[in-house]
Each structure stands twice: as structure tokens, then as C-alpha cells.
């Protein structure tokens, strides 16, 4: 299967990753803030991840690492 990890401290909450995920599993963690005061992005339903890396491709800040 596949897995994505978010370096949350680098996220600026721009949400672009959430707009391109074909599986619609990238969400904003509105329950927490990173040091810069942004809600970081993340994935809960990791099992649905297909490792396409679309989220990482559009991320301007290299927040996302993808394994497959």
C-alpha cells in the first residue's frame, strides 16, 4: 500500500494538497496548530492512500513525503 507523512511544522495551511487528492483523504487538522499558528494538513484514512504523490507535487513547502 502507500503512506504519506506530513512535516507539520513546515505546513502553512494553504490547503492546496486537499484540492488534488484523488481519494479525498487529505484534510486540514483543525484540532491543532503548528508553531507558526497554521492548521497543518494530514491524512487519517491512510489505508485509502494510493501513493500518487499529487499532494506532495502541489505542496509549495515540501511538507509531504510519500512511500509506496
Amino acid at each position: 500500500m502507500a503512506r504519506v507523512t506530513f512535516i507539520e511544522e513546515r505546513c502553512k495551511g494553504c490547503k492546496l494538497c486537499t484540492t488534488v487528492c484523488p481519494k479525498k483523504i487529505v484534510i486540514m487538522r483543525t484540532d491543532k496548530l503548528n508553531q507558526k499558528g497554521f492548521h497543518p494538513a494530514g491524512v487519517d484514512e491512510m489505508d485509502k492512500c494510493i501513493g500518487c504523490a499529487f499532494c506532495a507535487t502541489i505542496c509549495p513547502d515540501c511538507v509531504i513525503e510519500v512511500e509506496k
Partner: peptide
């Protein structure tokens, strides 16, 4: 599983100000 996407070496591991 293998890493298929990560920060390229030529890009320094520092936050960008944009």
C-alpha cells in the same frame, strides 16, 4: 515500502519565507 517523493537534495532543508 520505498520513498517515492521527498525533498530533493539540491533544496536546502530550511523553511521558505513565501
Amino acid at each position: 515500502m520505498a520513498v517515492v517523493f521527498k525533498r530533493p537534495h539540491a533544496l536546502r532543508d530550511v523553511p521558505m519565507h513565501y
